[in-house]
Measured scan of single mutants.
Amino acid sequence: QEELVKAFKALLKEEKFSSQGEIVAALQEQGFDNINQSKVSRMLTKFGAVRTRNAKMEMVYCLPAELGV
C-alpha cells in the first residue's frame, strides 16, 4: 500500500496524466496489478488532487503543492 501511494504521488508530480485511465495504466506498468479506475479515483480524492493546466496547456492531474511530495 505504501509503495502504491509513493508511485501514485510520483506519477502525479510529472503532471502529464489527463485521465484516470492513464494513471491506472501507468501504475499497472509499474507492477501494481490490482489497481483500477475506482481505486485511482479514491486516491485522487484522498490526496486532494486537482486538474490543472501544465506547461503545454494540457489539462492534467496534479497534487496541491502544500502536500510537499
Rank of each mutant, 00 (worst) to 15 (best):
Q1I: 11
E2R: 10
E2C: 15
E2S: 12
E2T: 11
E2I: 12
E3K: 13
E3D: 12
L4M: 07
L4R: 01
L4S: 01
V5W: 09
V5E: 15
V5Q: 08
K6V: 10
K6Q: 11
K6N: 12
K6D: 09
A7T: 05
A7Y: 06
A7W: 05
A7N: 04
A7P: 00
F8K: 00
F8D: 00
F8C: 15
F8A: 02
K9G: 04
K9Q: 09
A10K: 10
A10G: 09
A10C: 06
A10M: 10
A10S: 11
A10R: 09
L11Y: 03
L11N: 01
L11R: 01
L11G: 01
L11K: 01
L11Q: 01
L11W: 02
L12C: 04
L12W: 03
K13N: 09
K13Y: 11
E14Y: 06
E14P: 02
E14V: 06
E14T: 12
E14G: 06
E14S: 13
E15H: 10
E15W: 06
E15G: 08
K16N: 05
K16I: 08
K16S: 08
K16P: 05
F17K: 03
S18D: 03
S18P: 04
S18K: 15
S18V: 11
S19E: 08
S19K: 09
Q20W: 06
Q20T: 12
Q20V: 15
Q20Y: 08
Q20G: 07
G21F: 12
E22R: 05
E22C: 04
E22I: 03
E22A: 12
E22F: 03
E22P: 03
I23T: 01
I23W: 01
I23E: 00
V24W: 04
V24E: 04
V24C: 05
V24Q: 05
A25L: 11
A26T: 04
A26K: 08
L27K: 01
L27R: 00
Q28G: 05
Q28V: 11
Q28C: 06
Q28L: 13
E29K: 11
E29R: 12
E29F: 08
Q30I: 10
Q30H: 07
Q30Y: 07
Q30N: 05
G31K: 03
G31M: 02
G31T: 01
G31F: 02
G31D: 02
F32G: 00
D33H: 13
N34R: 09
N34D: 13
N34F: 12
I35F: 03
I35P: 01
N36L: 04
N36S: 12
N36V: 05
Q37M: 12
Q37H: 12
S38H: 13
S38I: 12
S38Q: 13
K39D: 15
K39F: 13
K39M: 15
V40M: 03
V40R: 00
V40D: 00
V40A: 02
S41Y: 08
R42G: 11
R42L: 13
R42Q: 15
R42S: 13
R42E: 15
M43L: 13
M43H: 01
M43G: 00
M43K: 00
L44K: 01
L44T: 01
T45I: 14
T45R: 14
T45P: 03
T45L: 12
K46F: 15
K46R: 11
F47M: 10
G48Y: 03
G48P: 02
A49H: 02
V50P: 02
R51V: 10
R51Y: 14
R51K: 14
T52F: 07
T52D: 05
T52K: 15
T52E: 07
T52N: 08
R53H: 12
R53M: 15
R53N: 08
R53Y: 11
R53I: 14
N54A: 02
N54T: 05
N54L: 03
N54M: 02
N54K: 03
A55C: 04
K56P: 02
K56D: 13
K56W: 07
K56R: 10
M57L: 11
M57S: 10
M57W: 08
M57Y: 09
M57E: 10
M57Q: 12
M57C: 04
E58N: 05
E58H: 05
E58M: 06
M59V: 09
M59H: 05
M59T: 07
M59D: 07
V60A: 04
Y61G: 02
Y61L: 04
Y61K: 02
Y61F: 07
C62M: 13
C62H: 07
C62K: 10
C62S: 13
L63C: 12
L63Q: 03
P64R: 05
P64M: 04
P64L: 04
A65K: 12
A65N: 11
E66Y: 09
E66I: 07
E66F: 08
L67M: 12
L67H: 13
L67Q: 13
L67V: 14
L67I: 14
L67Y: 05
G68Q: 12
G68C: 06
V69Q: 12
V69Y: 04
V69K: 12
